[in-house]
Simulated scan of single mutants.
Amino acid sequence: MGGGDKGLLELGGKPILAHVIDRLSPQVEALAINANGDPERFAAFGLPVIADNVEGHPGPLAGVLAGMDWAAGEGFDLIATAAADTPFFPESLVHGLYLGMVSERVPLARAETAREGGFDRHPTFGLWSVSLRDDLRAALSGGTRKVIAWTDPHGVARVVFDGEDPFFNVNTPEDLERARARA
Rank of each mutant, 00 (worst) to 15 (best):
R115V: 13
L127S: 02
A149T: 09
P107S: 09
A139M: 05
A157C: 08
I148Y: 00
P90Y: 13
E164N: 12
P123Y: 00
V106I: 09
F168I: 11
R133W: 06
T151P: 00
T172H: 08
I148W: 01
V130M: 06
V160P: 05
I148A: 13
P90I: 13
V159G: 05
V170S: 04
P107Q: 07
P173A: 04
W128F: 14
G100C: 14
G143Y: 08
L132E: 12
V130I: 08
E116K: 05
P107L: 03
H122E: 05
P173K: 03
D165A: 12
A109R: 04
P90M: 13
G126L: 04
D135C: 12
G143E: 08
T124I: 10
M101Y: 12
E91T: 13
H154A: 07
V159L: 02
G100V: 08
E112W: 01
P153G: 06
E174C: 00
F125K: 03
D165I: 00
E104I: 02
N169I: 02
V156D: 11
V102F: 06
S103W: 12
R158A: 04
D152A: 06
R137Q: 07
L132P: 04
L127T: 04
G117R: 03
E174D: 14
E104Y: 04
V159N: 07
S141A: 15
G142S: 12
W128D: 01
V156K: 05
